[in-house]
């Protein structure tokens, strides 16, 4: 078991003929992902990274049975790409693209919800389940299979913590990056709920950062319904209010979104919050 993806997931790459799309398609294939189709309008009939390319998502799905999507298209075209994937009921739809306008994200997320499919991202590294499936751009070599479920708003910080877990002999069931934008599809609460229901996942690592209140909402859910151990880390304790720290969503607005508020909410929910990312493995080991 894993969350969101498994060894049967059949992946379509939207924007496969671009540099990033083709490069990461090769890495996904090396990981073992079943990438069955690519799609770039006007380039149907070609191949990219050895994968057949289609003009429309509908054709790709009809001919290859694709069930999930990974979107690499530029920001100004990303909403259209997502709506096309939603129309074909692909699930999950992982959006790697950064700098998508927030009004577009609101529209995509609402459309996905109405169609009963899940968007992961935008502006995230995607999802990976070791030895089964990776959709996105996480480096292949970090992972080892096991019982830790990790959910994060950040890319490199996820890699840093996954690498630390692997070094400590703590394998992962699935790692999922939610994305650094203010409005994203899959939330902390939804990811934590999936891990709580996944029999393979024995413990959960939640990596948050300043901005918004998604960590606080997850904390309320954990307190009410999660019995598995949870370790938390929040980045941005030293961030000044009003400044966007790299991610569009990493900003303290007024009194909302401080690291302190998130840490307090998680601790009140029984989560073991560490002060440095390198401390995750030892604290986790103590809880297993």
């Amino acid at each position: 078991m894993a969350i969101l993806v498994n060894e049967h997931t059949r992946v379509l790459i939207q924007g496969i003929t671009g540099y990033q799309g083709e490069f990461h398609t090769r890495r996904m294939l090396e990981f073992g992902t079943r990438v069955v189709a690519g799609m770039t309008p006007g380039k149907g009939g070609q191949t990219a990274a050895g994968v057949p390319v289609f003009d429309t998502v509908a054709e790709a799905v009809a001919q290859t049975g694709a069930s999930a999507s990974c979107i690499f298209v530029p920001a100004r075209l990303a909403k259209d790409a997502a709506l096309e994937a939603i129309a074909s009921r692909l699930d999950p739809i992982v959006i790697i693209t950064e700098h998508i306008p927030v009004h577009d994200s609101i529209e995509m997320v609402a459309a996905a919800r109405a169609a009963g499919v899940r968007i992961v991202g935008p502006n995230g590294p995607g999802v990976a389940s070791p030895e089964r499936c990776k959709i996105g751009i996480m480096p292949n070599l970090l992972f080892s299979p096991g019982g830790v479920g990790l959910v994060s708003r950040s890319g490199t910080l996820t890699y840093e913590i996954v690498a630390g877990l692997t070094r400590a002999g703590l394998g992962q069931s699935t790692a999922v990056g939610l994305g650094g934008d203010p409005v994203v599809g899959l939330t902390f609460q939804e990811a934590v709920a999936l891990f709580a229901d996944d029999p393979e996942t024995q413990a959960i690592v939640l990596v948050g950062e300043i901005g918004g209140s998604a960590e606080e909402e997850a904390a309320r859910f954990i307190k009410a319904s999660v019995r598995k151990p949870v370790v938390g880390y929040i980045a941005g304790r030293t961030a000044p209010p009003g400044k966007r720290m790299g991610h569009a969503g990493a900003v303290i607005s007024g009194s909302e979104g401080t690291a302190q508020a998130k840490i307090e909410a998680l601790e009140a929910a029984g989560v073991s919050v560490v002060s440095l990312p390198g401390r995750v493995p030892e604290v986790l080991r103590g809880l297993l």
Binding site: S152, L157, V207, I210, G236, T238, A239, K243, M245, G246
Partner: peptide
């Protein structure tokens, strides 16, 4: 983002850089 300390920081990835600032402060 300009801050008021004396340790210049370069990292890759927003989350990693935020946590790097926190480590310096820690």
């Amino acid at each position: 983002v300009e801050l008021d300390g004396d340790v210049a920081i370069i990292g890759n990835g927003a989350g990693l850089v935020m946590s790097t600032l926190d480590m310096i402060a820690h």
